[in-house]
């Protein structure tokens, strides 16, 4: 019991000692970088619509995302994306490029353990939850709409 008290007290004391960093620079950078990635996406989308005027909106967006995913994996391979992420934080995690980075980075990292056990097995160590949660929730949503549709 005494230990628990001491641990609580120690944790409280440590929290008061943790260096307070100013959040403003990273918040600013995440805003700018995040905004710019979205603007880039809008630009790609507009160019696609100009080049292929008869394409559906949905297909144009799908291609836009594929281009962004390509760019992010490429920059990850060059070792540039993690340096953007260092100062942009959420600005380069939240866009789809962050998803791409989280698949490409472990693949490159674990290449040393071979193609099967390295690249393929470790590919989803970070992005796995995104796909699992996405699939599960889409099935749930589909199920709910299916039930609703029966009435």
């Amino acid at each position: 019991m005494e230990d628990k008290q001491r641990n609580l007290q120690y944790n409280r004391y440590v929290n008061s000692k943790i260096p307070k960093t100013h959040p403003w620079p990273t918040l600013f950078y995440s805003f700018i970088v995040g905004g710019l990635i979205c603007v880039l996406g809008q630009g790609i989308n507009d160019i696609i619509m100009v080049l292929f005027p008869y394409m559906s909106q949905a297909s144009a967006w799908a291609i836009t995302l594929i281009v962004l995913i390509f760019l992010a994996s490429f920059l990850t391979g060059l070792g540039i994306y993690d340096q953007i992420g260092k100062f942009a934080g959420g600005g380069s995690i939240v866009p789809i490029t962050g998803f791409s980075n989280s698949i490409a980075s472990p693949s490159i990292e674990f290449k040393s353990e071979g193609i099967i056990y390295g690249i393929c097995v470790k590919m989803f160590t970070i992005a796995g939850p995104v796909i699992v949660f996405g699939t599960v929730s889409s099935v749930l949503v589909g199920f709910i709409y299916w039930i609703i549709g029966m009435f």
Partner: peptide, 29 residues
């Protein structure tokens, strides 16, 4: 609008990171 909304969404992500120290996988999810 794209810039402002996109920037804002990402900044909310950053606020989550700073305040709760969550990892990027959780942010994405």
């Amino acid at each position: 609008i794209v810039f402002l909304v996109g920037g804002l969404v990402c900044m909310i992500g950053e606020v989550l990171i700073i305040t709760t120290n969550i990892t990027s996988a959780r942010i994405l999810v």
